[in-house]
Design a protein around this nucleic acid. Sequence first.
DNA 1: ATTTACAGTTCTCCAAATGTTCTGTACCCT
DNA 2: AGGGTACAGAACATTTGGAGAACTGTAAAT
Lengths: 199, 199
Amino acid sequence: MLTIAQRKTLAFIRRYMKRRGYAPSLTEIAEGIGISSKGTSHRYVQALAKAGEIRLLEGRKRGIELVDKKELSKFTLPLLGTIAAGQPIKAIANQERLDLNDYLIGPNRYALQVKGDAMIGIGILDGDLVIIEHSNTADNNAIVVALIDDQEATLKRLRHLKSGRIKLIAENPDIPPMIYAAARVKIQGVLVCQLRRYC
Amino acid sequence: MLTIAQRKTLAFIRRYMKRRGYAPSLTEIAEGIGISSKGTSHRYVQALAKAGEIRLLEGRKRGIELVDKKELSKFTLPLLGTIAAGQPIKAIANQERLDLNDYLIGPNRYALQVKGDAMIGIGILDGDLVIIEHSNTADNNAIVVALIDDQEATLKRLRHLKSGRIKLIAENPDIPPMIYAAARVKIQGVLVCQLRRYC
DNA sequence: ATTTACAGTTCTCCAAATGTTCTGTACCCT
DNA sequence: AGGGTACAGAACATTTGGAGAACTGTAAAT
């Protein structure tokens, strides 16, 4: 339940965002609700986030998002808990919901269907769908879609070698890793998620 | 979430393209939003691309395309094609979209997180999420959540034996299959889909 | 084919705006 | 007096906004 001051804060944030299209700063919130300390408005904003009325984008200026109560039920599934061999399902407290939306969807993402067993060692099988986020760079050890000599595109684990060359590793003991000069390899995207349908 | 400057940049690009029919250059963008460094406008444009507001046509001058936001907000992803070791991405004709909604979501479905390696043989690893559709029956050979003696819940492959008994098979050579009298096994749900996040 | 102007990319540096955390003060209540 | 709440304001860390130089790549003109 919100206090009067928190309610006032929320109302101000809503008004501000509606009018200007972006979130107010803490100083503006303080002004807007008639106090002079942004330390205090900070407290209210934190309380609103905890109450689930807004969402805070960590480490960003004006990083407030309104939570749309309608949207909440759309692409979510109840996350019941964990299952292991030999043990009952262990329920997770207060029935979390899993938001598949931010799990899977995003700008610059696309799906590919995997052919072949090159990545079988990490459980990516023939026919699986992988979701790729478009990017020209990738962290060491990430799994990437790499284009070699502008010809072949493959899904492999990436490793930057100290020599500056690039090692592409298939997670399959039958397929040896390959090493290429950096110029021959273009990264097209990074593996974000994998999914497989059973029915 | 866009910053104020990014928003301003996007608005300018939209205005410019509407009026002139083609995209502005970085210098024009800088002028248009009232700054003098095209290095800076470059940063904003990159940020907009990452946020999915625009698309950049690589290696082309004035290569900015506006992205239609309507498509993006749905629960779909472009399905580009297939990827295999040693071959280019094979595009699927006219860019199908993959609707994850009917892939994943449904009434009576819930998610569980898998613990342990019991199903490693078919690529279900520790930590993966599985989506289960609630059901008291299952086809032969389906993978199910089964409750044994009202005690243990496990994820196993189901096989109805001619004897009327039920065989539960872990897809792991280290774990032998178990056979139970039908009365001891209750099916709680059927594995519909599996997904794993990599980042 | 070469030159040239335009456009995009990368980099470094700096300043201002903003979020976060703390400490201190005032007021109200029992 | 003690505890709680509301608020102010300082101090600090981080993000955002911006300038400009140097470089690479593209496309058009010669």
